[in-house]
Design a protein around this nucleic acid. Sequence first.
DNA 1: CATGAATGAGCTTTCATTCAT
DNA 2: CATGAATGAAAGCTCATTCAT
Lengths: 219, 219, 219, 219
Amino acid sequence: MNKQSTRRPSQSRARNTRDSLLKAAVQVFAESGLTGGSVARISKLAQSHDRMIYYYFGNKEGLFVAALEEIYRQYNEAESAVTLNLAAPIEALETAIVFFVRYFRDHPEFVTVLNSENLHRGKHISQSLRASQFSKPAIGLVHRALTAGQQAGLFRHDVSSRDLYLMISAMGYFYQSNQYTLSAFLGQRLADPVQYQHWEDFVVQAVKSAALNTSQKIG
Amino acid sequence: MNKQSTRRPSQSRARNTRDSLLKAAVQVFAESGLTGGSVARISKLAQSHDRMIYYYFGNKEGLFVAALEEIYRQYNEAESAVTLNLAAPIEALETAIVFFVRYFRDHPEFVTVLNSENLHRGKHISQSLRASQFSKPAIGLVHRALTAGQQAGLFRHDVSSRDLYLMISAMGYFYQSNQYTLSAFLGQRLADPVQYQHWEDFVVQAVKSAALNTSQKIG
Amino acid sequence: MNKQSTRRPSQSRARNTRDSLLKAAVQVFAESGLTGGSVARISKLAQSHDRMIYYYFGNKEGLFVAALEEIYRQYNEAESAVTLNLAAPIEALETAIVFFVRYFRDHPEFVTVLNSENLHRGKHISQSLRASQFSKPAIGLVHRALTAGQQAGLFRHDVSSRDLYLMISAMGYFYQSNQYTLSAFLGQRLADPVQYQHWEDFVVQAVKSAALNTSQKIG
Amino acid sequence: MNKQSTRRPSQSRARNTRDSLLKAAVQVFAESGLTGGSVARISKLAQSHDRMIYYYFGNKEGLFVAALEEIYRQYNEAESAVTLNLAAPIEALETAIVFFVRYFRDHPEFVTVLNSENLHRGKHISQSLRASQFSKPAIGLVHRALTAGQQAGLFRHDVSSRDLYLMISAMGYFYQSNQYTLSAFLGQRLADPVQYQHWEDFVVQAVKSAALNTSQKIG
DNA sequence: CATGAATGAGCTTTCATTCAT
DNA sequence: CATGAATGAAAGCTCATTCAT
């Protein structure tokens, strides 16, 4: 089980180099985007050399693809750790909503790297062989809560888990992604904990309003 | 065709140079972001010279600030042209929702330039003297529809126009901004007109669900 | 007539920069070939900056094309300065032969830059618009001597000026181009003036043998 | 196909590695010169590793020296296989001429690698211990034909085998070496078989004209 | 108002070579 | 014998910006 113990020194040294380059890449690309983040800054942050980026990732774009895959991997990993109480579907949906909204808040690198990828019209994610397998887990969380609630007669049948997932993501993502222009625009600091909590509550209410059966809401 | 003979007063020529540089800047920054868009590409697209950018805008950042102001100006201008039938508040809200969602769809430059500004943590928008005056008109549209509906007893009193505006923006913006990664993620082309229309309908329903009085929804 | 006097300072400064870059390029490419000659060495030799090479020539290959054109231009210019006494065709042919053989000896940059271009399979010369106009003058020299001699009944009619030009060039060029390997190969310093003079005499005899009418040679 | 099971004694494997590196080096240096050919490309072409070049040849220059020796070895080997009918000296000379001219045509790697070595002023060939022994065989071919003809009273006594060898080489080598610039210069494809045959015939005639006794040519 | 020329720092990438097993 | 990993210099080229009229 313990790979660490059976590794030869050179292998583990290599793994460390590769890993630290990848970690540094995620950080730098998150701060400055693909264009703005230089390989020199990445290799320096990783305490390695420019050359090693080309050794392990081919070129800057190869590193960006790897960074993209890495943030998706972490995203799915975090989602996998969420447990839903499907016996209480409304609570399960709330759990899912809060998870996503907080994930975007706590992982700005996920948000900014995805923005950078979208600026480049998704050319790297389509290169990645693993791209297709990324989506299922994340939507699955919403899907499980929704279907449980539908079976219990709590949720509407004419709403799809895809739309609900997009709605949750949109509201969580946008709040984080555009916080600086919105803060200037609205004259309020969106990152403020009180402000944030207000928004989280609103998202929960809005999503529930969209999902709940109207008849359920009475009484 | 002789430039010499047709030249207009110098002020007007200057305006043309300045305007075409600004227009080119919006386009280039929209395509490639602040870092990725070079002054050379902008001046070439404007059929002018690098030097003129420094003459009119001081430096690259000054040009970006101007571009930012320009897209906000257009955004507010478009909003001002929308007329709401406040006698029918639900219809008025629908009009507002559709306007915003479609604006983001039809103005990708607005989306990508704002993303670029947020990547830089809003440092340019805060430099702009006009920043504060940008927000009012846009939120005003939602505000007018909401208050009209509240007075008519149709809309909830515990929902703010700010939250509703953010909700609408989030859902419209995110769909456009992240279309490439989402398309790969979901295996669907979000830009497809059928897909888009489905989303627009969903946004209208979701926002209405969040705004409407529960009692109204029965019967 | 005097362009120098009517030029504005900036123009002449520019001309100097461009000219010195081109001159340095010929020298460096001659010493080290296209691949081996770095833009840094060229710009330094020209007491200018790397950047100016891109300003004036687009890129390294553009500079190489310009260098290629320059050495051809000089070659043709030198040939134009040769005057043949066509009344004495044999002497005229000798003059032409000696001119070519000495030109290759005295202009090693012509030889090495052409070698570099041939290593790259002539991809740059075919880019040059002026390529086609290069050949005529050089061959013309041989052509004039040959036809004069043919009309005088001294030279064979079944030998073409093209073949004669190639023969002369081959013998002059090869001696210079391959002098280092030949010197090692033969154990003789080919650059030695005595050695060189012997070769020049031999070339003159060989070419005359190829051109002269057999009947002429008797008596 | 299992490498493990078919592996030969280690000495033989080493020979294979060394040989394939050397073969690849000749090819790459022929295509791109010493400077333009990278060790990575060579080791990749040989399906080996960069490190092996340093193991067997010390460094890149050592490999180039080995490649130089290799092409000379092949050149001498080919010459050794030529048999001359010394009873018919003119025919023997023709055989020698045709051999050389065709060798340069059929072995462009010989031509380009020698050009590369001359660009570097012969610094590698002088390092090679075997350099001195290279010349004798090649000149020997011309020498045997010439002396046979001189003894038979067919060839002039005032022409040396060295000059004749240089003349043949020059005309054969230059036609191949400079084919690309010449083709552009002359507006003719020199590699065309008809063109080539014309040149081969001309070389044979020219060399014979230079070698033959004048008195012989009459009658 | 406008422009050609110049600048130097920075960019991504490739180079030949050595280290450590 | 062989190999994966590491190294630092140097390559070609682009960047935003300023100079000098």
